[in-house]
Amino acid sequence: MFKRLMMVALLVIAPLSAATAADQTNPYKLMDEAAQKTFDRLKNEQPQIRANPDYLRTIVDQELLPYVQVKYAGALVLGQYYKSATPAQREAYFAAFREYLKQAYGQALAMYHGQTYQIAPEQPLGDKTIVPIRVTIIDPNGRPPVRLDFQWRKNSQTGNWQAYDMIAEGVSMITTKQNEWGTLLRTKGIDGLTAQLKSISQQKITLEEKK
């Protein structure tokens, strides 16, 4: 169930391209415009997507990853294993993690069937560096609404905000991946996880038929 919630949630996290980005210092504006741009692209490019579902990787690479804190999220997933990894191991892992996100997020976007969304009203940021933004996803086919909290983090150097995690039903996506990959990290280390991520990233994206 959580895996499905995570995939549905990713439908609204794909941010804007650099040329049309919203105010990078306001995570609420980023979330709002990102959702609108993403849904528009999914709707307008269905012919290309249906002809070649792996085209979704391109959308992810162009529109999402430049505005997601990939390395920060990847380091959180590694936890204690990050500090013990060599620079070469980290570089290989982050490259594999990025390719994994292209496949995983692309597969999530393949679930698009006309969903709509509501974003919580903007709250004062103050001096906060981590801000959760509640998004409610509404399914046109009558499924119950899904309420999610996207975690946005302020870059201490640039002042810009980027998304790095999502919490559904009190469970963090980062925590879920830590639990899912924990045994592999304990037995085969970061190299074993890197190899698995490379394998997963090679899987073809498949479209979910409308139910």
Rank of each mutant, 00 (worst) to 15 (best):
P145R: 10
T129F: 11
T176Q: 15
Q123V: 04
A75L: 06
K71M: 07
N160M: 02
A34N: 15
V60N: 13
L65D: 12
D32W: 07
P47A: 08
L16C: 12
I174W: 12
Q123F: 07
E122G: 10
E33R: 03
E122S: 12
N26R: 05
T58M: 15
E45K: 06
Q62F: 01
P144T: 08
V8H: 01
E99A: 13
A22N: 13
I49R: 08
A168H: 14
V8D: 06
T176R: 06
V135G: 10
R90E: 11
F39H: 04
P15G: 10
A75F: 06
A104E: 03
Y55P: 07
V60L: 06
V77D: 05
F39D: 04
E122H: 14
E169H: 14
G126H: 00
K71T: 05
R186P: 13
Q36F: 00
L125Y: 14
Q24H: 04
L184M: 01
Y82M: 03
A92T: 00
Y72E: 10
P145Q: 09
D23M: 09
L101E: 00
A75C: 08
A108G: 07
I205K: 14
E63C: 00
P145W: 07
A110G: 10
K177Y: 12
A85W: 06
T176G: 08
H113Y: 12
L193W: 12
K198C: 12
I13H: 01
K177I: 14
I138L: 13
Q89E: 15
P87V: 10
G106Y: 04
N52D: 04
Y72F: 09
S17M: 01
F150P: 05
I13Y: 09
E209N: 08
T136E: 09
Q202Y: 15
Q36V: 12
P124F: 05
L5I: 15
L101C: 01
D54K: 09
Y81D: 00
L193H: 04
R4D: 10
S84D: 06
I200P: 08
V68Q: 00
R50C: 11
M166L: 07
G74A: 08
K128L: 10
K204P: 09
A120L: 07
K3R: 10
P27Y: 10
D23L: 02
R98D: 14
Q203K: 13
P140W: 02
A92F: 14
I200R: 08
F39A: 00
Q48D: 03
P124D: 06
V131Q: 13
P132F: 03
G142W: 07
D127Y: 12
L101V: 08
T183K: 12
I200V: 08
Q203M: 01
D54T: 00
T58G: 06
S201T: 11
D165W: 14
K210T: 05
L185C: 05
Y164R: 05
N179C: 07
Y112S: 10
I59G: 07
S201D: 00
R143I: 12
A168I: 08
L30C: 04
K71A: 07
P27M: 03
Q123W: 12
P47N: 12
A9I: 04
D40G: 06
A19L: 13
D139S: 09
I130C: 13
A110T: 03
R153E: 03
L207S: 01
V12H: 10
A92Q: 10
F94A: 09
M111D: 13
A95L: 08
K37N: 09
L16S: 05
I13P: 04
N26T: 08
N26S: 06
A85Y: 15
A110N: 05
N52T: 04
V12W: 12
G182H: 15
D127H: 00
A9H: 00
L207E: 14
E99V: 09
K198L: 09
L109Q: 11
A73C: 07
D54I: 07
V131A: 04
I167P: 12
I137Y: 00
P66N: 00
Y67R: 05
K188G: 10
N160G: 08
I205V: 12
G189S: 13
E91R: 02
F97Q: 00
G192T: 12
K154D: 12
F97S: 08
L5F: 05
K83V: 01
E122F: 13
A19T: 03
V60M: 00
W152P: 12
L56W: 00
I167K: 00
T116N: 10
G182M: 14
E209K: 01
E208V: 06
Y55K: 06
F2Y: 00
Y28I: 12
V8P: 02
M6H: 13
L5H: 06
V70R: 02
L10C: 14
K198R: 08
K3H: 01
M7R: 03
A95E: 13
I174P: 15
A35M: 13
P15L: 15
I13T: 08
K188A: 04
A14E: 01
T129E: 03
T20S: 04
Y67L: 07
D54G: 05
D191F: 11
P140E: 07
K198M: 15
A9M: 05
Q48I: 09
T129S: 07
I133E: 07
L5K: 02
W161A: 15
A96K: 00
F94D: 00
K128C: 07
G79L: 07
I190D: 02
T129M: 03
Y72P: 03
V77K: 13
R98C: 08
E99W: 00
V8Q: 06
Q115R: 09
M7E: 11
K177H: 11
L197M: 01
Q203F: 11
Q118Y: 02
W161Q: 13
Y164E: 13
T38D: 00
Y105R: 03
R57D: 00
R186Q: 07
L197H: 04
G189P: 08
N52F: 01
R90S: 12
N44C: 00
P132V: 12
T183G: 10
A34L: 13
E99D: 11
D127K: 01
P124A: 06
Y67S: 12
A51Q: 00
N155K: 12
V60Y: 12
M173R: 09
R143A: 13
P87S: 05
L125T: 07
K188V: 07
A110E: 06
A95F: 00
P140S: 09
T25A: 13
P140T: 07
V131I: 11
R134L: 09
K71W: 09
K188P: 09
K154G: 13
D54C: 09
K154I: 02
K29N: 05
S172Q: 11
P27V: 10
Q103P: 01
R4L: 02
P53L: 15
M31G: 09
L10M: 05
V12Q: 10
T25F: 00
A14M: 10
R98L: 06
L78H: 00
Q24R: 06
V131L: 11
I49A: 05
V12I: 03
Q69L: 08
V68D: 11
E63M: 12
L11I: 05
R143Y: 13
A88H: 00
G114H: 13
L184V: 08
P124S: 07
R134P: 14
A88R: 01
I119W: 10
E209W: 12
